[in-house]
Design a protein around this nucleic acid. Structure first.
Lengths: 192, 192
DNA sequence: CTCGTTTCTAACCAATCGTTTAGATATTGG
DNA sequence: CCAATATCTAAACGATTGGTTAGAAACGAG
């Protein structure tokens, strides 16, 4: 009976994700979303409820975009070295045609000091916690005891965020140096 | 002949700095600046020209606020360990009554993906470059060769930024763990 | 006191923000 | 072909953004 939708939610969210990723949440206006998603404000609100609704859908889309690298890490049996590979895979995800956009989750956490946007922060926290557990699993495989594995996982979570931030302002070789140095240093603490 | 100013630039900028530090550049509006600085919009524009003008003055105020820790690092002869102490001193600067505000420079760099605000970015870059050179000097004192010192200084610059970011979202003990682990790891690479 | 100069108050500016709504436009079962 | 229902366009919403301005108020040299 009713009229048909002229767009697919997944398609327009993909474009919104790109926009949020490049510009950040606050620097992305509804009118910019309109023109980039190719649909009217009315349709955006009909499908996603609010600007925050669009953003949360974008965060989820980003997460699935990220899942290939995550699965690869999950299935690897290389222990610590799998995490290093994971970091390089992430760098590939961050990289755009000319520069690095960083990690959408890390960017958002850095840009949102507003503690009121709890839904968004919860979405990010879930992503971070999932990765932390993954790191712990890999470090246990690598032969560390539980307590050390947790501490190093915390260290690696912070490191991953700093890789995202660094990739946006430093030349890629410096970021590579950073990763190499980090894992050399970690290995050195294991063998002494 | 003329009427006297009823405020001191330094005083009102101190309050503006606090505000930018907590809220970030974009989340601080002119009306909020008005009420916090205790002067009218007219006076703000008369003294600082624009919102960006206020912010740049705030960045400079932040830098002098930071200078005690910098001078202490500069005058130390403890090499690498002086840098570690410097990081802890920075943490103290970031810390507020209840939480950590992070580093105003790092916060801003993370929040500004707008490449148009060149004046602001230049101000930040100058601060970063100064610290990088300081790190290089300390690492040379510590006995490293020039090339290694430069690479490790780059590493430490990234680390410092990640300490700022981490302090805003992780419990302080985790950040302490992060610093301890980092310097243990660096020391381990020196003694292999 | 008066005049010239500056700072102050307070209203106002256009532009944009996220969000809503009225009405035209499709679509399809009956 | 019509009536029901959903989606579309486009204009408008109040609030807030960074920035401006006219006129009152305060000062100090003459």
């Amino acid at each position: 009976m009713p009229r048909k939708k002229s767009y697919e939610d997944n398609d327009v969210i993909e474009k919104a994700t790109e926009l949020f990723w490049r510009n950040g949440y606050q620097n992305t206006s509804m009118s910019l979303l309109e023109s980039t998603m190719g649909i009217n404000k009315f349709s955006i609100y009909a499908s996603f409820g609010s600007k925050q609704g669009v953003f949360i859908a974008s965060l989820q889309a980003y997460r699935t975009l990220h899942s290939t690298a995550i699965i690869k890490l999950k299935q690897s049996n290389q222990g610590l070295m799998a995490i290093k590979t994971f970091f390089y895979d992430c760098l590939d995800i961050y990289h755009d045609t000319d520069c690095s956009k960083g990690c959408l989750m890390s960017n958002t956490r850095a840009q949102l000091n507003n503690h009121k946007e709890t839904k968004i922060l919860a979405e990010i926290q879930s992503f971070v916690d999932y990765q932390r557990q993954l790191f712990i699993d890999k470090l246990l495989e690598h032969g560390l005891d539980q307590s050390t594995a947790v501490k190093q996982a915390n260290y690696l979570i912070i490191t991953k965020q700093s890789i995202s931030a660094a990739s946006k302002v430093h030349p890629i070789e410096q970021v590579h140096d950073y990763i190499e140095f980090t894992f050399n240093a970690i290995s050195a603490t294991h063998t002494h």
